[in-house]
Design a protein around this nucleic acid. Structure first.
Lengths: 337, 337
DNA sequence: AATTGGCACTCTAGATAATCGAGTGCCAGG
DNA sequence: CCTGGCACTCGATTATCTAGAGTGCCAATT
């Protein structure tokens, strides 16, 4: 139905349109790419492509622009992920290598991705779900308030103030701390639920409510809130582009954690490169946007996602290359630390 | 030189211009505010105001718009900080009250300020300079690498991986940990420098380099990097406005930590409400912007700054009221926790 | 001396019209 | 199936005109 030349034409249209931002006509097309046929032939091809919904005309007597469906075909069958240049790889390595702590890794990753792709970058904090507990610290903050500090074997530290149901003595705290460490040390955070079950038996009756409160925080709050943390950067790159919906909508979407969660959650296979194009995106206000996302993590565990967001008219091969490369390096960093 | 009526005219011009975004003429002015004089009289006044540089004409035969100098006079002498409504105060209280930890306080503050003022909000993390050490924890991460965790009496936790000059045994770590806690416990972080001096004497010679490495991280890195952390939000509010310089510049400035530092640093008295208008701002790309900032902290200590950034044409009394109120509430929250 | 009504003047925003040209669709011939 | 030719469409650009908001200035008034 679509012979090779028609596909080549589609590819050419997309490449031209992405780089020039202007509808591309049959004449320009033959000139710029060396298709050995006449403009009239191209026009026939374009008519077919249009009929099938891969390209569209903004108005009669203008060139063609790709539709979402056109981009989709391009991404699926007409393009390859573009590997980064040697220089770019080195840049990633040195830039990410200098990170101090997790916060810093995430911040730097965002900046890096935004800079590499000249788009908006979105990075989710890695999940603590599979981390193991190395140490739990309890520090009294008030009569019925303690600070819970959790140190994982991946070298991460999470803290949170906990309001207790009862007031608590320093002794009880010490007791609870010892017990928590005994129970949790070396165990994955995901097991916290199990520990909650066996804990009451090992606590004085008087300490049970407080102990339960601390554990539920450990579970619900630390682990889950971490995943909800999503950072974006490179908003300045939006200003240059023209989103028909108005970039106000885009910025609003980016500032809503909930929306970002959904955005990253929507992609199918979490581990692999996923591209969502234009209207494929269910998030309000992002119908003109495309998202290139992938999971990342230490080893083969997917701990979180990162993505690049731009107008549907974006350099997909380049963005995909950058996303993949950055995800790999971040994974390495996480594995090392 | 400027009699009362001329000042009233200036105030009226600013108020109208801020709310309508359009140059305001003599006729409209008399209509909307009840100045009991004729348009011609106002025109004379406006001529004087213009001569003195308080207002300007975009072009002949257009109304007048305020200049930076005009806004400056308005802020200094013609307006009062507008207190928030009861409802707004309650909203602040409940919204900030629900915060989990410091990160959450800062994030919520940004959102709150952005929403209250419909502008961009900028918030700096509170300095650790005056906090006291409650506990120091060292966790081995590798042969020559430890994780340093610092818990302060204000319930904050900072962590950082430290690469040591020599490899280290678990014994040494325990020793170092005990010593650090003995030295630092209860002392303000600002004293860390002093502790560095006395530490070597109390360490085995073999532990000295490692101990010094840990302490220098404590000092340089934890405390200072915290102050450098600045968050902004509400960028979507920029989209509606029209910055002549292009909002790209504004967004770029906002994404540069260094620039934000300078922005907040420039204000004079750190404790009080400061307004910087248009060109008063030395930051490139923000010559069309105004910044309303103030310091905040627990008690009377100024720990950091927060600000609102918008076009010079902004609602100064409202912004000042919001900034002041939010700063106070955040201060309270910090003092409590 | 300050205020005011009157008036001519100046621009800009917006409407209308004319023109240009890139790009198309279609057709007849190779 | 490809191609050159050709009439046609329609947005973008430019030119011209008009209406009206707003001004500055002046002479008269209080």
């Amino acid at each position: 139905m679509l012979d090779d030349r028609k596909l080549a034409v589609l590819r050419a249209i997309i490449e031209d349109y992405v780089s020039t931002t202007e509808p591309v006509g049959s004449k320009t097309l033959v000139d710029r790419h060396n298709l050995d046929v006449s403009p009239a032939t191209i026009r026939n091809d374009m008519a077919v492509l249009e009929e099938q919904g891969y390209i569209a005309q903004p108005h009669t007597s203008a060139g063609r622009i790709p539709t979402d469906k056109g981009y989709r075909l391009f991404v699926d069958r007409l393009s390859a992920v573009k590997p980064l240049s040697q220089a770019e790889r080195r840049a990633i390595e040195t830039f990410l290598g200098g990170a101090y702590d997790l916060d810093d890794v995430v911040t730097r990753t965002v900046r890096l991705l935004a800079q590499l792709t000249r788009q908006v970058a979105v990075v989710q904090y890695p999940s603590l779900r599979i981390s193991c507990v190395r140490h739990v610290e309890l520090v009294p903050l008030g009569p019925a308030r303690v600070l819970l500090v959790l140190i994982t074997d991946t070298g991460r530290v999470e803290q949170r103030g906990v309001d207790l149901p009862d007031s608590i003595t320093d002794d009880s705290i010490a007791h609870l701390r010892a017990l928590l460490n005994a129970c949790m040390d070396g165990r994955p955070l995901a097991d916290a639920a199990g520990v909650v079950a066996e804990l009451p038996a090992r606590l004085d009756a008087s300490d049970r409510p407080n102990g339960a409160a601390v554990l539920s925080v450990l579970l619900e709050s630390l682990v889950e809130r971490h995943e909800e943390k999503i950072v974006f950067g490179g908003a300045a790159n939006l200003a240059a582009r023209d989103f028909s919906a108005g970039l106000r909508d885009v910025l609003e979407a980016l500032e809503e954690q909930v929306v970002l969660m959904r955005l990253l959650g929507e992609s199918g296979d979490p581990a692999s490169l996923t591209v969502r194009i234009g209207a494929e995106n269910t998030v309000e206000g992002l119908h003109d946007a495309s998202i290139v996302s992938t999971g990342y993590g230490a080893g083969d565990q997917v701990l979180a996602k990162l993505a690049v967001l731009g107008p549907t008219r974006m350099d997909y091969p380049g963005a995909m290359g950058a996303v993949r490369a950055v995800a790999r390096y971040v994974g390495q960093i996480l594995a090392e630390s």
